[in-house]
Design a protein around this nucleic acid. Structure first.
Length: 114
DNA sequence: ATCGTGACGAACG
DNA sequence: CCGTTCGCCACGA
């Protein structure tokens, strides 16, 4: 099956789709990490793959899935060369009421999910 | 099938 | 509290 995210062909991969279904459940005003999602899926060591899945998503600026609510385990947004996406992510999160401290770090205890 | 790659993360030093 | 190293695993060439 091909999940249509624009022209990008998504593989018939349960892991990717599982990632998306989890991300969709993150409530507004909350955030979680790549590793957390991987753990929820029963693949505690597949954090990188979660990032890989979200990467394919962001290209199409998919509105249905709140990709911006996924950050790294340190509680920060990961740049990795794409400053545009990073700033967009922060803007979206600020709009949702996420609070960043002086070091651009979120408070897991108050805004972490689950 | 093999291999390099990466929105990660934990373990070191 | 840094920066490095290493394990991880789906994907695409």
């Amino acid at each position: 099956m091909i999940v249509e995210f624009g022209i990008v062909k998504m593989p018939d991969n349960n892991f990717f789709r599982s990632v998306y279904s989890i991300v969709k459940k993150i409530p507004r005003g909350k955030v979680t990490s790549y590793g957390r999602i991987a753990a929820l899926l029963g693949h505690p060591r597949s954090a990188r793959v979660v990032g890989y899945a979200l990467n394919a998503l962001a290209k199409e600026s998919e509105s249905e899935i709140p990709w911006q609510r996924v950050i790294n385990s340190k509680g920060k947004i990961t740049f990795k060369g794409d400053l545009v996406r990073a700033s967009l992510q922060k803007a979206l999160l600020l709009e949702e009421g996420i609070y960043f401290d002086s070091e651009d770090c979120v408070d897991w205890k108050k805004q972490g999910w689950p």
